[in-house]
C-alpha cells in the first residue's frame, strides 16, 4: 500500500522549507510576502500530489514556487530589482543546492535546539514539560499553576515559532505571532 499522502508530504516537501524560503526571498522584493508564496506553493504541490506524486519532489516544489512568482509578477506588475525584464532570473533557482540539503540528523537536532532556545522562557518551559517530559496538558497546567487555556496558548505560539525558526531563511514578520501575544493571557478557540 502506498504511504499516506500527509506523511509523504511532510517528509518530501515540508522538509525543504529552508531552501524554498531562501529561493523565494532571494528573488522576491517584498519579504513579508514570502510566507504567502510558500504556503501557496505547498497547496499547489499537495493538490498535484493527490493525483500523482512527483518523482523529484524538491525540484517540483521549487519550480512550483517559481511559477507562482512569475504569475504574481505578471498579475501585479511588480518590478523586482532582480527580476529584470523577463523571467531569466527564475531559471537559477532549481540548480542551486543549498548546504542545508546536506545536513545530517545531528545538525537537524542542533537546528531544533537552537530554534527551541529562541522561544520565550514560558514557551520553552511549557513545551519542555509537554513534549520532552511527556506530561499531559493538564499536568503541565497544574505544575505551573496556570490554566489549561494558557498552556494551550503557549503551545500554539511555541509550535508556530518552532516551525518558523527551524526552517528559517528569511524574516517573514507576517507569520510570526507577536511577542505580546505570548505574554497576554487570553486564549481563543477556532
Amino acid at each position: 500500500m502506498e504511504e499516506p499522502l500527509d506523511s509523504w508530504f511532510k517528509r518530501e516537501i515540508l522538509s525543504h522549507e529552508a531552501i524554498l524560503m531562501s529561493s523565494i526571498s532571494r528573488v522576491w522584493p517584498r519579504q513579508h510576502e514570502v510566507a504567502d508564496i510558500r504556503q501557496e506553493a505547498y497547496a499547489r504541490v499537495y493538490e498535484a500530489a493527490c493525483q500523482v506524486r512527483p518523482q523529484a519532489p524538491k525540484a517540483f516544489l521549487l519550480v512550483t514556487a517559481q511559477h507562482l512568482m512569475a504569475d504574481r509578477i505578471r498579475r501585479e506588475r511588480i518590478v523586482s530589482i532582480r527580476a529584470g525584464g523577463d523571467n531569466e532570473f527564475l531559471n537559477v533557482l532549481v540548480d542551486e543546492l543549498s548546504p542545508e540539503q546536506r545536513v545530517g540528523a545531528h545538525q537537524e537536532l542542533a537546528r531544533l535546539a537552537r530554534a527551541f532556545d529562541r522561544l520565550s522562557e514560558k514557551c520553552r518551559e511549557v513545551i519542555w514539560l509537554r513534549r520532552v517530559k511527556g506530561m499531559s496538558q493538564r499536568e503541565v497546567a497544574e505544575r505551573l499553576g496556570l490554566t489549561e487555556k494558557t498552556i494551550e496558548k503557549h503551545l500554539r505560539t511555541g509550535t508556530r515559532r518552532l516551525a518558523h525558526y527551524m526552517r528559517e531563511n528569511a524574516l517573514t514578520p507576517g507569520v510570526l505571532p507577536k511577542r505580546h501575544e505570548e505574554e497576554s493571557d487570553e486564549a481563543g478557540s477556532p
Binding site: K10, A43, Y46, E47, L112, I127, V132, T159, L162, A163
Partner: peptide, 22 residues
C-alpha cells in the same frame, strides 16, 4: 481549502519534531 491543510501539516510536523528534543 488546501491552504488550510498544508498549514496544519506544517505545524503538525513542528509539533512532532519538538519531541525529538528528548
Amino acid at each position: 481549502s488546501t491552504l488550510n491543510r498544508v498549514a496544519y501539516l506544517r505545524l503538525e510536523l513542528a509539533w512532532e519534531e519538538s519531541a525529538r528534543l528528548k
